[in-house]
């Protein structure tokens, strides 16, 4: 065998031609206001879990909306369901509900 000493990197791009948006569309159908997120980050700023772990609620739900589901269920498990994010959301998104919805659609809720 040839010892190459490297592997061919896989593309990092979010490829919307290949991503299956089926689950994302199902989530948005149940909670269309999630699309109204303006990415202000107040949910993440106030997040009990996000201040102590790498959990970034805003980023994860944005990725889910693009059809990037890998690891999203596990990320949502970090949520402590305190509900502060819902309190601060200026767009009135039921963020706590989004956590549960993503878990429900992506994993064994």
């Amino acid at each position: 065998m040839i010892q190459w000493g490297f592997n061919i990197n896989q593309p990092r791009a979010i490829n919307l031609d290949k991503n299956d948006r089926l689950v994302a569309d199902r989530i948005l159908e149940q909670m269309p206001e999630l699309e109204a997120c303006i990415a202000c980050g107040s949910c993440t700023a106030t997040c009990t879990a996000g201040n102590l772990t790498s959990f970034n609620f805003r980023k994860v739900h944005t990725l889910v909306r693009r059809g990037e589901y890998k690891g999203a269920y596990e990320e949502m498990n970090k949520c402590m369901l305190c509900g502060k994010c819902r309190l601060v959301c200026p767009r009135g998104i039921n963020t706590r509900g989004v956590v549960l919805l993503i878990k429900q659609e992506l994993g064994d809720y």
Partner: peptide, 15 residues
């Protein structure tokens, strides 16, 4: 088209 989805910090492409 190619862009960056700056809110998640990853390149994005689509047709």
């Amino acid at each position: 088209i190619k862009a960056e989805d700056t809110l998640v910090g990853r390149p994005l492409k689509m047709t």
